[in-house]
């Protein structure tokens, strides 16, 4: 806690053990109990210290329990009982099938309070994000849009592009002609392919910019559809498209 006080982020996370996948039941159970004891220590420390830079910080606890429904239920109940201002779900997106991830999110979200933000840590692909929004998750993070960008994987509204593929070699069309991102309209697929293949720094920059812009566009669209009342049909349509390999 003191470390995160010094770094000074607005939202800071409890210290937990994120179990690997696969993880045997007994290990997951013992780990979970320790994570809950650690949470008590985190809260005690956090509540007895002041922020260092004059603005408020908020502590989110983390639900664990691997892919075991009973452990997830128990953890969500313990985490909810701490009554912090927001809650997180950890230990998912660590190699388990997507269906197991969704099943865990669903059961945990049925217990975590509705009036507090829910943060699903380390998730995920564009489809994972939309499916988990549909299950009541509010916040996501993932290295995928930036890490995969540096390897030439582009996430787009029409599906996934591996820009290193031969087929983009002489495709001089823009990365995304409909995008409101200047770089998407200015640079062609063939040019970006050349930059990534040549390991040029600009290639990593353009691809990272593209992917992050797309991720932020996606969640903004989701938000607008929720407000409009058309989210579910839009989501069903999008998840069929976003996983396609172009």
């Amino acid at each position: 806690m003191d470390t995160q006080r010094i770094i000074g982020a607005d939202i800071i996370m409890a210290f937990d053990e994120c179990t690997p996948y696969p993880c045997d039941y007994n290990y997951a159970k013992r780990s979970l109990d320790m994570t809950h004891r650690w949470l008590k220590r985190c809260c005690d420390r956090f509540d007895s210290t002041e922020p260092l830079y004059g603005y408020e910080q908020t502590l989110f606890p983390i639900v664990q329990g691997s892919v075991y429904k009973d452990l997830r239920i128990k953890s969500a109940e313990v985490i909810a009982s701490f009554n912090r201002e927001g809650n997180a779900i950890g230990g998912l997106s660590v190699g388990e099938p997507a269906e197991e991830m969704y099943a865990m999110t669903e059961v945990v979200n049925s217990i975590l309070p509705e009036d507090k933000p829910r943060y699903l840590m380390g998730v995920g692909t564009p489809v994972n994000i939309l499916e988990n929004i549909a299950l009541g998750v509010d916040m996501f993070d993932c290295v995928m849009p930036t890490r995969n960008a540096r390897n030439g994987m582009l996430f787009t509204r029409n599906g996934i592009i591996n820009i290193k593929n031969e087929k983009w070699k002489d495709d001089f069309s823009p990365i995304d002609a409909e995008s409101d991102l200047l770089a998407d309209r200015v640079y062609s697929k063939a040019y970006l392919r050349h930059l990534i293949k040549s390991q040029e720094i600009l290639g990593a920059q353009i691809a990272s910019l593209h992917n992050l812009h797309f991720y932020l566009w996606l969640v903004k669209q989701a938000r607008e559809k929720i407000v409009e009342g058309t989210f579910y049909d839009w989501k069903e349509k999008m998840v069929k498209i976003l996983d396609q390999r172009l």
Binding site: T58, G86, K116, P117, G136, A222, R223, F231
Partner: peptide, 19 residues
């Protein structure tokens, strides 16, 4: 920190809010 829910989807658990 303050969280305000602004909208909820009828066919799923999706919600829109502001932190």
């Amino acid at each position: 920190m303050k969280f305000t829910l602004q909208a909820k989807d009828k066919l799923s658990k999706a919600r829109a809010g502001v932190i």
